[in-house]
Simulated scan of single mutants.
Amino acid sequence: MGVVIPLEEGKNKQASVKPLVDLTKADMDRVNQLILSKAGSDVQMIPEVANHLISSGGKRLRPMLTLAAAQMFGYEGEGHIRLATSVEFMHTATLLHDDVVDESDMRRGKSTARMIWGNQASVLVGDFLLGQAFKMMVDVGSLDALDVLASAAAVIAEGEVLQLSVAKNMETTEDDYLAVIRAKTAALFAAAAEVGPIIAATDKATRGALKSYGMNLGLAFQLVDDVLDYGGKAADLGKNVGDDFREGKITLPVILSYRRGTADERAFWKTAIEQGESTDENLARALTLIGKYNGLGDTIARAKHYGTIARDALSPLPESAHKAALMEVIDFCIERVN
């Protein structure tokens, strides 16, 4: 069940993350070397578990945001390499913990670490990576950058707990859900983008612009992920279509379809999600109801709204190749559903 987004007028090519990749390539090579170095340990299981996920083919968008945001303001030091690596370790730790909490079997097309090494190892290696991230933040010597990333780590943990409190609860509102993804996903995007201008010693307004850009990009990114779970292809997702449904996750397409449905349809959602009756037959009905109430289309519309806010946040900044690349990332994130 595919979803097509009409591109804006005047656009005749698919947006790409390539300009951002090209601008940050040299620095990302150094980040990748540091990742491998800092994921090492004399305890054999730590690098095995860490590298299982680190080497599994993620785009590393968050550390690229840190690098680009530092480069665009002329930063020439070494700190952005360590901060970008810290951001990636925070993200990887979150994924390791997420897979345990969500009892996920697949991540990026491979068995999750917890399926291979168990829940305890996944949680503890995630903790190790967080520790390494904070050591690198301290090495940079910027209290402001440390504050931003440490605060993000606390917010992400709050988001995890908040998600548990609304899990499998069909009375979850759209505002409740947005609070979860603002904390779980968007907070790290915001921090990744903000620490770049911090170490480049820019002014408060510039920091605020990049923070707002990252926050709203993160919201758009997660909302599109929600759509892809019901309207994407397994090869693109690195997991099976409908995994969110099978895991009983409350995402925006489900919330919209539940609230717009009849009493009988709402009863179905309660049975499927709250009672865990996530059969293939029920998934087929869920897809039908999401289509009936335009759950995917309206979720995409929300994502585009946050994309517009992200674009407006960057608009006052001077024109540059880095600004253009960050702008294109917004379209890339949203157009993944094409």
Rank of each mutant, 00 (worst) to 15 (best):
Glu9Trp: 11
Lys11Ile: 00
Lys13Phe: 04
Gln14Lys: 15
Pro19Val: 03
Lys25Asn: 12
Val43Asp: 07
Ile46Thr: 07
Ile54Gly: 01
Ile54Thr: 09
Ile54Pro: 00
Arg62Ile: 11
Met64Asp: 05
Thr66Glu: 08
Ala68Leu: 13
Gln71Ala: 10
Met72Phe: 02
Gly79Lys: 01
Ala84Met: 09
Ala93Lys: 01
Leu96Thr: 06
Asp99Ala: 07
Val101Ile: 11
Asp105Asn: 14
Ala113Ile: 09
Met115Ile: 07
Val123Ala: 09
Val123Phe: 04
Gly126Trp: 00
Gly126Ser: 03
Phe128Ile: 06
Phe128Ser: 08
Leu129Pro: 02
Gly131Ala: 10
Phe134Val: 12
Met136Phe: 08
Val138Asn: 03
Val138Ser: 14
Ala152Cys: 15
Ala153Phe: 03
Ala154Phe: 13
Val155His: 00
Ala157Met: 12
Gly159Met: 04
Glu160Ala: 07
Leu164Val: 12
Glu171Ile: 15
Tyr177Phe: 14
Leu178His: 10
Lys184Leu: 07
Thr185Trp: 06
Ala200Asp: 08
Thr206Asn: 02
Thr206Pro: 02
Thr206Gln: 11
Arg207Phe: 01
Ala209Ile: 07
Lys211Gly: 10
Tyr213Asp: 02
Gly214Glu: 01
Asn216Glu: 05
Gly218His: 15
Phe221Val: 12
Gln222Met: 07
Leu223Trp: 10
Leu228Arg: 02
Ala235Ile: 13
Leu237Tyr: 06
Val241Thr: 14
Phe245Trp: 03
Phe245Met: 02
Thr251Ile: 09
Leu256Trp: 05
Ser257Ile: 03
Arg260Trp: 08
Gly261Asp: 10
Glu274Val: 14
Gly276Arg: 08
Gly276Ser: 11
Asp280Arg: 04
Ala284Cys: 01
Thr288Cys: 14
Gly295Ile: 04
Leu296Phe: 03
Leu296His: 04
Ile300Thr: 07
Tyr306Val: 02
Thr308Gly: 10
Ala310Asp: 04
Arg311Leu: 15
Leu314Asp: 14
Leu314Asn: 03
Pro316Lys: 03
His322Tyr: 15
Met327Gly: 09
Glu328Cys: 00
Asp331Leu: 01
